[in-house]
Design a protein around this nucleic acid. Structure first.
Lengths: 388, 388
DNA sequence: GCACTTTGGCAACAGCGTTGCGAAAGTGGG
DNA sequence: CCCACTTTCGCAACGCTGTTGCCAAAGTGC
């Protein structure tokens, strides 16, 4: 059960600017999220109270109080103890995975993948079916609701019910919500699709509200690349990184300071149509010399090395512009020839870093599904990773 | 006097991750900064307590308490009242400009400009001399100290002295610190220069500490583009924007969510060497097809429209990648033909926005000096605009 | 001139992290 | 085996935060 007990009287009337005043519940919520995030990062290994205190900058006593509340709420539990260093051994704390669940959905062009994950992000159950976006919003919403329902049948259907503070309230674990990841331009703040290529009946469809009304749980909608990047951010890739996705198209998810950067209109990460060749060959978007067009054309010609070089050039632009720490590559096309792409992109980045006398930015293949990341859209606020 | 009374017991031992736990002093500090920022934005027009409450999301009573402390500290003052709307008229509050000062320095290639600004950012005094970076660190530090000293002679030499809470403590206004802006790669967190083109004796020079030791006040060092962008962010340009500087070189300052994005190594905003023409003409950096090379070459040929088109293409990449709200242009080359650059860049952005069916991103000429922005480096933390 | 509205301060309050202190639970030397 | 020491961690009192209830102040409008 996760009732977010302290969030009750948080200021809801936000100001016109993004920054908002903080009060005691907000303070409590912030610190709780911080501790939960560290517990999550520690994983099954766990983490001691004093370590939490060091990492957060809070007093050991404050950590004791916070973890006591988390234990009373069933979110955390003691899990053995460390070896003594001459005194009382540290008690290890651990996140209770079953304390909450979330559903993540990946709506791809022809396929729907749904996962049920626990608080730690581990996949508990999984569904997979074909999907036809052309069947229109109603049919797709029905299909999505069916898959989600099949997964959520095993956890409490209701959520958001504030269980209060009662100790021992480790009753039913709740479904925190459903995260939906799909391609194409959309508005993540309102959960409204802008356009779905080839299917005008989707224009402006309020997917979030339609699903939330039908399923009775909170729904979060985001671009597939953002969801994937969020999933990678949770899986240890700290700091700032760019996730470059090369499949049928080319896109990017940007993580800056541990949170996904989406921009005001969820437009951030528009990487495929970065122009890297002035007056180059025309692209389907109407522009000329876009990375996507150049890169995919090279792949079609079988010149993977050239594709990697083009991708590396655009990645170099991104790395230089944002001072990114890490580049992660994903997508079907990359998976088909991972070594060629990694070494090809890395070669361009290394050369560029060498010229300015800086350390090269590492390039790796990303591992992690989009649906898993979509589930993290729901879990992120609980761990203080909401927006950026 | 600005003693940051609440900052005394803030957690100093930050964790390894960037996010840190919050306690009551931090809460107080945050809300105080929020109110101060709104007071600053309101300018001479002022703002009422209830308006502050609406904008911050805080209770009117909390705002009353916070503003009472600010008034006791001499940071804010009552300034008349609004027209009544049927009841007691609202009292207007205003930032007291003389409550604190900051010095901003712009070290350009051949010139040093120094300004003394008050809390609102208004320039109180100004100095200007020629500068020779080739004379070496010691000579330059001495020159900088001389100019800074000439400006700071009129305010209290000591700062950071916590005056405590004594009501009526509106004694001497203090010098909060010195902000230094200069070109070239550097580390803003440690205030160390990496390289100054053509002068190897500057390599790794700890400019911040050298100046701080000599002058006895806090010093902040940052790239000129970042300082300029910060100054523009304070001057009303809210949200997220990119400041593109085209002078002897081409650089950018990125403001995302009201704060300057610098990246982990202060490398962010490296805009001049974005590659927009694969295998294009060689650039001084060793790469090929950099915007800076293409753009400046066009300017040298007298083809301002072509230069604007090239700049617009790179700006379009940036806008798409980050979902930026606004593009501001500055620098000598732009000032020489402002209309041509603004319309040329806007044309590219408009065309690109039209294709994806979004509203075009506005393009404007930036107004504001680098030295003024450098002074804001010092003031930013007071108004909650530290880092991003 | 009185009723009403709106502003904003005083006082009591709940809740946050902090400090002081002591119990619990180990290690290690005699 | 026992005792001194170290280290962990909870209980209790505390200071300070924003919040709530209430009332004085200062206007408008009939």
């Amino acid at each position: 059960m996760v009732g977010r007990p302290g969030a009750a009287s948080a200021p809801v009337t936000a100001g016109t600017s993004g920054v908002v005043g903080a009060n005691l519940p907000a303070l409590r919520s912030h610190n709780m999220a911080l501790v939960l995030d560290l517990l999550r990062t520690a994983g099954s290994e766990g983490i001691s109270r004093l370590e939490l205190a060091e990492r957060t900058g809070l007093t050991p006593q404050a950590v004791s109080k916070i973890t006591a509340r988390l234990r009373a709420d069933g979110l955390a539990a003691e899990a053995g103890r460390r070896a003594s260093t001459g005194g009382k051994p540290r008690t290890v704390l651990r996140l209770v995975p079953e304390a909450g669940h979330a559903v993540g959905l990946h709506l791809d062009r022809d396929e729907l993948r749904a996962v049920l994950v626990d608080l730690t992000g581990a996949v508990v159950a999984e569904e997979r079916t074909s999907l036809d976006l052309g069947a229109g919003p109603d049919a797709v919403v029905a299909a999505v609701a069916r898959e989600a329902g099949a997964l959520t049948g095993r956890v409490a259907p209701h959520c958001g019910v504030p269980h209060g503070w009662a100790p021992g309230g480790r009753g039913t674990d709740a479904l925190l919500g459903i995260g939906v990841a799909l391609p194409g331009p959309l508005d993540h703040t309102r959960g409204v699709l802008h356009r779905v290529t080839g299917f005008p009946e989707w224009d402006g469809f309020p997917l979030r509200d339609a699903l939330a009304r039908r399923l009775g749980v909170p729904v979060v909608v985001d671009k597939d690349t953002n969801a994937a990047a969020l999933g990678l951010a949770v899986d240890g890739a700290g700091g700032s990184f760019a996730y470059l996705y090369l499949g049928t198209g080319l896109g990017a998810g940007l993580v800056i300071g541990g949170t996904v950067h989406r921009g005001a209109r969820t437009g951030a990460g528009e990487f495929g149509h970065q122009v890297v060749q002035l007056d180059g060959p025309p692209c389907g978007c109407g522009n000329r010399g876009c990375v996507e067009a150049l890169c995919l054309a090279a792949v079609a010609r079988g010149e993977v090395d050239e594709a990697a070089r083009v991708l590396g050039t655009a990645a170099g632009n991104l790395v230089a512009l944002l001072d990114i720490d890490l580049v992660l590559l994903g997508g079907r096309t990359v998976t088909a020839a991972p070594d060629a792409f990694v070494s090809g992109v890395a070669a361009v980045l290394d050369e560029r870093a060498r010229r300015v006398g800086q350390a090269a930015v590492p390039v790796r293949v990303a591992s992690g599904g989009v649906a898993e990341g979509a589930a993290q859209l729901v879990l992120a606020p609980l761990f203080g990773r909401a927006d950026g």
